[in-house]
């Protein structure tokens, strides 16, 4: 389904004169982009970064197996972190929607706290302070837990937006039928709410995945850390980091695409704007 966006509506159908102008400028733009790419390639060539020894080891299966292992750890950390963030976020969301003032206050405070503090600060906390308190964690948990904590506030707010997007009439109807509030929440409201927020939950998974790149702080063998090992093996900094950056970009791009597709699939446009 092709959505019409404002992007296509801004212009009238071009006449012959405008078409000619657009053609000329398209040519100029193409030339400029080509020049830019040429400049970058020249810089690579002049500094010797195109030399075979910087790139040939990417043809070896062992290189990719090693990067793949790192990637697997990265994905494992991201998925585990996201799952924990979902559990924590769900709890905070339930807390924020309670009638009990104290519970609501605590939940709100925790949500604002986790949303206002950078992930790196949580990571340093788990790296520097938690071991001092005598809590021995493996490197995997030292990166997964702070990433999860840092994401849970955003997840809570996303879930709350979903719950609020479910029409009030349904709650009233269920209550008048004699459903208990718990049953109402899990049977009527939440199944609909979760459909609203799946796209934003995937977007949050992307953020967790990005945050796991800080795993090198706690020396967890993720993609970034394995890249460092490759670099010291082959003495090839630029090529390895570039390839790794492209891997991250591709994975996150695909996840974001999935989120977009689901956003269109799961709902009519009216429902989506209600949840936003």
């Amino acid at each position: 389904m092709k959505q019409t966006s404002i992007r296509d509506l801004l212009y009238e159908t071009p006449g012959p004169a405008a078409r000619k102008k657009i053609r000329v400028w398209t040519g100029v733009a193409l030339a400029a982009i080509a020049a830019l790419i040429a400049l970058i390639v020249r810089q690579f060539a002049e500094t010797g970064q195109l030399a075979e020894r910087y790139w040939s080891f990417f043809a070896k299966a062992t290189t990719w197996r090693f990067l793949g292992q790192g990637l697997l750890t990265t994905l494992e950390a991201a998925l585990t972190g996201a799952a924990i963030a979902f559990a924590l976020g769900f709890t905070l969301m339930r807390g924020k929607l309670r009638r009990n003032r104290i519970l609501r206050g605590i939940s709100t405070a925790l949500i604002e706290f986790t949303r206002g503090v950078p992930t790196l600060l949580f990571i340093y906390f788990f790296f520097l302070v938690v071991p001092q308190m005598g809590w021995k964690l493996s490197a995997f948990w030292k990166i997964t837990l702070p990433c999860a904590i840092s994401a849970c506030g955003v997840v809570a707010e996303a879930l709350r937006a979903g719950v609020n997007a479910v029409p009030k009439g349904q709650t009233e109807a269920a209550l008048s039928l004699g459903m208990t509030e718990t049953r109402l929440f899990y049977r009527v409201v939440f199944p609909q709410a979760i459909r609203f927020v799946i796209p934003s939950l995937i977007a949050e998974l992307v953020i967790v995945l990005k945050d796991t790149t800080f795993a090198y702080v706690v020396t967890c063998a993720d993609l970034m850390q394995n890249a460092k090992v490759l670099i010291s093996n082959y003495d090839a900094m630029l090529s390895v980091y570039l390839v790794v950056a492209v891997i991250y970009i591709l994975i996150n791009y695909l996840l974001n695409k999935l989120s977009d597709v689901l956003a269109v699939r799961l709902h009519s446009p009216a429902e989506r704007s209600a949840a936003a």
Binding site: K210, T213, M224, M237, Y241, V244, A245, Y248, I249, N252
Partner: peptide, 15 residues
């Protein structure tokens, strides 16, 4: 939008 901040910074600083 999709590059992790750490990866970008490392590219800028070291690569």
């Amino acid at each position: 939008r999709n590059i992790p901040g750490a990866a970008l910074l490392i590219l800028l600083v070291y690569a």
